[in-house]
């Protein structure tokens, strides 16, 4: 196949992602707008050809999120996605919540 066709095609289609799911927690006791702040945590895990033996990066995301908020975290959204690559991929967890302190 001619490289002048292949190269742009690879560039165009070479950075794909897949959002697997988005979980949304309950929104109980959400404080008023002026008494809340948005906290976000993101962790990822690089996987080469599927060789991966734990899912600890998920727990790390939760720890990161909690480290940013001493109070209650409500309205927590959790997104699980994967960025595809050449013989490898990156799994990503993104958590976001509303922190009410004090």
């Amino acid at each position: 196949m001619k490289i002048r066709i292949l190269l742009p095609l690879m560039l165009l289609t070479g950075c794909t992602h897949s959002v697997h799911m988005q979980h949304v927690s309950d929104f109980d006791d959400v404080p008023a707008a002026e008494k809340r702040s948005v906290v976000t945590a993101e962790t990822e895990q690089s996987v080469v050809l599927g060789f991966v033996f734990d899912t600890d990066y998920v727990d790390q995301a939760k720890q990161q999120l909690m480290a940013q908020c001493n109070g209650r975290l409500s309205a927590v959204t959790t997104q699980y996605s994967t960025s595809h690559g050449f013989l490898h991929w990156t799994n990503k967890i993104r958590m976001q919540g509303l922190c009410s302190e004090g």
């Binding site: 697997h20 979980h23 927690s25 309950d26 599927g50 033996f53 909690m66 975290l73 927590v76």
Partner: peptide
Amino acid sequence: CVSLNSVSLTQV
């Protein structure tokens, strides 16, 4: 090898 299927977090 381990693969994650789903994850969720409730209010903390």
